[in-house]
C-alpha cells in the first residue's frame, strides 16, 4: 500500500509541483558541472526506485498531477534566459512525465530507461553551460550573442544537445515520447493531448534559448572555441545516444 510519506518522497525525486521547487532550488545551489550532472543522472532513478519499492500501481491522480507539473515547467521554461535554471525546468518537466509512464505504461525497466534518456542530453547541456560560464563568467542569453560566429564548434554541439533535450528525432527522447503517447492514447485522450502540448512547449523553449545564444552580432570578447577533442567527444556521446535510443526504445515500438 502507498503511504503519503512514500508518495511525497517519490514526488520529491520525480519532482511534482510544489516539491519540484525543492529540487530546482537544490540544483541551483549545486556547484560544478560534474556534480550537477551526477545529480541529474541519479535523481530520477532514485524516484523510480522508490515507486517500485511499493510494488503497487501508482494512483491515477498522480499521473494527472505529473502531467500538470510537466506542463507548468514547460511553459515556464519558455520565459527563461539562464541556462542553469532552464535545464532544471526541462528535467523537471520531463521527469514529471515518468508518473504518466508508470500509471499508463508497463513501468518497470522501461521507466528507468526513459529517465536515463531524459537525463543524458541535460547532462551534456550542463557540461556545455559550464564551458560557457568558464569563458564568459555566466551562461545567460542576452549577455553575449552570436556564438555561432565566435564559437562555431560549441554552437554546433549546443544545437544538437538542445534538439536532443527537446525530444527531436532521432534522439531517444522522441521514441520515449512516442512510447508514452502509445501508452496513453487508448486510455485517455486528454492525457495524450497534454503530452503533445508538453512536447510542443519543449521545442519552443529549446529554440528560444538557442536563438538567444547563438544568433546576433558577436561582441568584442575573444574566447577560445571548444577544442577538437572535446567536440568529437560530445559528438560521439550524441551518436551513442542516438544508436542506444534506436536500439533500446526504437525497436520496442
Amino acid at each position: 500500500m502507498w503511504s503519503y510519506a512514500t508518495l511525497a518522497l517519490a514526488a520529491l525525486f520525480l519532482p511534482l509541483f510544489p516539491l519540484s521547487m525543492v529540487f530546482n532550488l537544490l540544483l541551483g545551489r549545486v556547484q560544478g558541472g560534474l556534480l550537477r550532472s551526477l545529480v541529474i543522472m541519479l535523481w530520477p532513478q532514485i524516484g523510480i526506485g522508490i515507486l517500485h519499492l511499493a510494488d503497487t500501481p501508482v494512483p491515477a491522480w498522480m499521473a494527472t498531477w505529473g502531467a500538470l507539473t510537466a506542463l507548468l515547467y514547460a511553459v515556464r521554461a519558455l520565459g527563461l534566459r539562464d541556462m542553469g535554471s532552464w535545464i532544471g525546468f526541462m528535467v523537471t518537466s520531463s521527469w514529471a512525465l515518468l508518473w504518466v509512464a508508470e500509471t499508463f505504461g508497463s513501468g518497470g525497466g522501461l521507466t528507468h530507461l526513459h529517465a536515463l534518456f531524459f537525463s543524458v542530453p541535460p547532462v551534456l547541456f550542463v557540461l556545455l553551460g559550464e564551458g560557457l560560464t568558464q569563458r564568459y563568467g555566466a551562461a545567460y542569453t542576452g549577455l553575449y550573442a552570436g556564438l555561432a560566429t565566435t564559437l562555431p564548434r560549441l554552437s554546433f554541439v549546443l544545437v544538437l544537445v538542445i534538439l536532443a533535450t527537446a525530444a527531436t528525432p532521432l534522439f531517444p527522447g522522441f521514441f520515449a515520447m512516442l512510447t508514452l503517447m502509445l501508452d496513453t492514447v487508448p486510455q485517455s485522450a486528454a492525457m495524450a493531448t497534454a503530452l503533445a502540448l508538453v512536447w510542443l512547449l519543449w521545442s519552443g523553449a529549446g529554440m528560444r534559448l538557442l536563438t538567444g545564444l547563438i544568433i546576433g552580432n558577436p561582441g568584442s570578447t575573444v574566447v577560445p572555441d571548444l577544442g577538437y577533442a572535446a567536440t568529437l567527444g560530445f559528438l560521439a556521446g550524441l551518436g551513442a545516444l542516438v544508436v542506444a535510443g534506436l536500439y533500446l526504445v526504437g525497436k520496442m515500438l
Binding site: L178, V185, P186, A196, L200, S203, G204, M207
Partner: peptide, 20 residues
C-alpha cells in the same frame, strides 16, 4: 518552426491511433 511543430502533433496522434 513553431507552426510546423503545431502541425506535427496531430500527425503523431493520428499515427498512434492507427497503431493502437
Amino acid at each position: 518552426f513553431l507552426t510546423y511543430r503545431i502541425g506535427d502533433l496531430p500527425l503523431v496522434l493520428a499515427a498512434v491511433l492507427l497503431f493502437d
